[in-house]
Design a protein around this nucleic acid. Structure first.
Length: 228
DNA sequence: CGAGTTTGACCGGCGC
DNA sequence: GCGCCGGTCAAACTCG
């Protein structure tokens, strides 16, 4: 799995996917059908682009895919934005997974249906969020099948709050990076529809390398590149 | 004893 | 203006 992650990381770096402009203006999700290594991976709306790049590296191993319920328009939009790489075709054909573009729109505290204007809705939400908080750090959100809430991403986190969010059974936990001067936060909650799924949202950029055991140092370093 | 967690209080944005 | 809600604070508590 680490090799796959590293490969995906390199692919994304090569394609300069994580530009601030994209990250700060868009929000999305990237989902995996299983995560036996208990590692967070994947990201965000750069999603359309990222999805294409990362899924190309991961699909065979993790059965990652656009959901069957993705509308034809959504698939066409992906194709029109980024061509039709082999990876994307493989995603569209896969029957294995469950993540819907509609769910992408619904996931962040919204009960509204994403519908056809899936990007439009996400953009509107981000504008609302920006209006509410003047400074909004880049955010990544992804969904992972995991029994544990807090995924080991190589960084040290300190919990600073927990909140029961309306219409959800499971509390949302708030974490901050323990490193001095590092203002990265993450939120962890379980998906109401499927409590086996953990939704992790990162906000901000780490200004340091992950703290890791020696065995993992190389991999974690590349994980760092993968995310930020 | 220091680091991390828990949890009720508080704050600010938003909708009505 | 008021109430709701998500996010944060901070004191008390737990753990190693």
């Amino acid at each position: 799995m680490r090799e796959i992650l590293n490969s995906a990381s390199q692919t994304m770096l090569n394609q300069s996917l994580f530009e601030d402009q994209d990250m700060s203006s868009q929000l999305g999700f990237f989902a995996f059908s299983s995560n036996p290594y208990n590692l967070p991976f994947g990201c965000s709306q750069p999603s359309l682009k990222t999805l294409t790049a990362v899924a190309g590296s991961l699909a065979a191993d993790t059965q990652t895919t656009l959901s069957e319920s993705a509308t034809q328009k959504q698939k066409e939009d992906v194709t029109s934005h980024f061509g039709e790489p082999p990876q994307l075709r493989s995603l569209q054909r896969s029957n294995a997974n469950l993540w819907a573009w509609g769910e992408v729109n619904d996931c962040m505290n919204s009960k509204k249906n994403g519908g056809d204007n899936y990007l439009g809705v996400a953009t509107i939400k981000m504008k609302k969020i920006k209006a509410r908080r003047k400074v909004r750090e880049p955010r990544f959100c992804f969904k992972t099948l995991s029994e544990v809430d807090v995924l080991d991403d190589g960084y040290k986190w300190r919990k600073y709050g927990q909140k029961v969010v309306k219409n959800t059974q499971h509390p949302r936990s708030y974490y901050r990076c323990t490193q001095d001067n590092c203002r990265v936060k993450k939120r962890v909650e379980r998906l109401a529809e499927d409590p086996r799924m953990v939704i992790t949202t990162y906000e901000g950029r780490h200004i340091h390398s992950p703290s890791q055991d020696e065995d993992d140092s190389q991999a974690s370093s590349q994980m760092n590149n993968f995310f930020w």
